[in-house]
Design a protein around this nucleic acid. Structure first.
Length: 510
RNA sequence: GGCCCGUUCGUCUAAGGGCUAGGACACCACCCUUUCACGGUGGUGAUACGGGUUCGAAUCCCGUACGGGCUACCA
């Protein structure tokens, strides 16, 4: 790579950051770091009507959570600012005017109502969505159809107008996509996109080209949904800065939900999150769940996203961010869309749950449910012991609640049905005696408790297997969890004895 | 409708002219485990279809079908 690698992620602050967005960030980041380049975040807020307060901060919070810090942005500074397009507004008009002077763009005075009328008039079964293009532009009100004097008059009168690109009615235009290879378009099928809006703001089309140039972007990655407008951008590069200066493009495949492109509604509908973190729309109050709050570790989230559309060619699936930077290459990114599989996502998280150092995991889980008040009084060493004991059984951070709550409170539900049918007087007697022996035990430790339990069982000629499940139900409430004696160990003498006594009394009364 | 992109197990994918098409998730069975998991072993399961090119095609070409995206003074 001859020039310095500079890539950018350019979100518009209109709402939550979804899966696909994060993956686009990730591939940008990995590519930049792999090649010793810079990762820039540019806020594309040229549509003021869609501006949502808080969305910008939210995006940066998501990136921080994922560990994908930009090198340059509104929050990080840099030599190519401002990094917010609304603050760059005065820049764009000159480029649009330059295109007009060259004959590659023109003023258009059509009002929204006139545009609507045009679409209505030319709509047909063959052409349900008429475009403002070479076939129609000469029937519209623009500097191509109006006399120069009239155009001047309208302009100096401050008449609202836009600037449109003039796409040739013939010829092909194409480029080499890093993922798809040669892609080409017949220019006659591309419409005259608006470049500069009536409010003086550029549209995405103009802004992306101007800013990528000014910010010296070397590689431009974006979602596949942008492919259809690529010919406009290539054309602008040709006419504004020369094709040689154009960044290399890569159009990333889409991440699909069960029914096509992932939308924020899919989360609620299919039971998995679509945003990185919880997002509440300040206007509607609508709340959309995030992966973070669902109990995903950022390491797992990054890992699973990376593997959705890319692999290193081996059978390795678990990668840390550092490993991804090492292994990543755009050549191995797929060209086809990938359907998101929540089950596999949970598996990734489970794997990371197991790899995480206990101390860190214990901390993450703890902050995940402050709600359990007894937790705050628990010393952290004991908590780490508990977390280490149950992590095998958890896929999400939130799973730890159900898997550990019996350590802190008497089980809410006790599965008596599991032991009641086979309960008898011998068992009642056994557990009465067990309470006595445990009560006088000074060395409260799992192995010792197991030994006492088994020797008593053999004295009474009862198979330990007959008694293990009852003990578990007494302590845990259900048929799950780590070894019973480990649980009793952690529960402590007093609590263990109390729980055994309580259920024994209940069962013997029936 | 037009334009563009895509198509290997249910899902994510490997194999970029040459082995019984490999792995992972999920599912099933067995083993381990005096619970539930973890783990281990095995199993079900795919090259969309039709034509070419070739000694040989999942792989290259064409067509069809299907899927997806775009078609705003939104990004």
């Amino acid at each position: 790579m001859s020039k310095k690698v500079r890539v950018r992620f350019a979100p518009s602050p209109t709402g939550g950051l979804h899966l696909g967005g994060v993956r686009t960030v990730l591939y940008n980041y990995l590519f930049a770091k792999k090649h010793g380049g810079d990762f820039i975040v540019r806020i594309e807020d040229t549509d003021q009507s869609r501006y949502v307060p808080g969305a910008e901060e939210y995006i940066f919070d998501c990136l921080r959570w994922c560990g994908l810090e930009p090198d340059e942005s509104v929050q990080h500074g840099g030599d190519f600012g401002p990094y917010r397009q609304s603050e760059r507004k005065p820049l764009y008009r000159d480029y649009a005017e330059k295109l007009i002077a060259q004959g590659d763009a023109y003023y258009a005075f059509d009002t929204p109502a006139e545009l609507e009328a045009m679409r209505e008039q030319y709509k047909s079964d063959q052409n349900p969505a008429p475009q403002y293009d070479h076939t129609l532009r000469l029937r519209m009100r623009n500097s191509l159809t109006l006399s120069p004097e009239e155009v001047d008059r309208l302009l100096s009168a401050g008449t609202p107008h836009v600037i449109r690109i003039l796409m040739p009615g013939t010829g092909m235009i194409g480029f080499t996509d890093m993922i798809r290879g040669e892609v080409s378009f017949d220019m006659s099928t591309v419409d005259d996109k608006v470049l500069l809006k009536a409010d003086g703001m550029p549209t995405y089309h103009l802004a992306v080209v101007v800013d990528d140039h000014l910010m010296q972007i070397s590689h431009a990655f974006r979602g596949e949904e942008w492919l259809p407008s690529a010919p406009v951008h290539v054309r602008l590069w040709e006419k504004l800065f020369g094709r040689a200066a154009m960044p290399e493009w890569a159009h990333l495949p889409l991440i699909l939900g069960p029914n096509g492109k992932l939308s924020k509604r899919d989360g609620a509908k299919y039971g998995f999150p679509v945003f990185a973190m919880n997002w509440t729309d300040p206007k509607t109050g609508e709340n959309v769940e995030g992966f973070r709050e669902r109990g995903f570790l950022p390491e797992a989230f990054i890992n699973l996203l990376a593997l959705l559309g890319w692999n290193d060619g081996t059978e390795k699936e678990l990668f840390s961010l550092e490993e991804l930077v090492q292994a990543f290459s755009m050549e191995r990114v797929h060209s086809s869309g990938a359907k998101f599989d929540y089950e596999k996502a949970k598996w990734f998280n489970h794997e990371w749950l197991l790899r995480e150092p206990v101390q860190r995991l214990a901390f993450s889980v703890r902050s995940q449910f402050e709600s359990l008040s007894s937790l705050s009084s628990l010393n952290s060493l004991k908590w780490e012991k508990i977390v280490a004991l149950v992590r095998d059984r958890c896929h999400l951070l939130t799973d730890f609640v159900e898997q550990t709550r019996y350590f802190f409170e008497y089980p809410q539900e006790v599965d008596r049905a599991a032991i009641e049918p086979k309960w008898n007087a011998e068992k009642t007697s056994f557990f009465h005696e067990l309470v006595t022996r445990y009560g006088s035990e000074t060395e409260w430790q799992a192995a010792k408790l197991e030994e006492l339990f088994k020797s008593l069982a053999s004295e009474r000629s009862i198979k330990p297997g007959e008694l293990m499940l009852p003990l578990r139900i007494m302590l845990v409430g259900g048929k799950f969890g780590p070894g019973v004696f480990d649980i009793a160990d952690i529960l402590g003498k007093e609590e263990t004895i109390q729980r055994i006594g309580l259920l024994t009394a209940q069962l013997s009364n029936n």
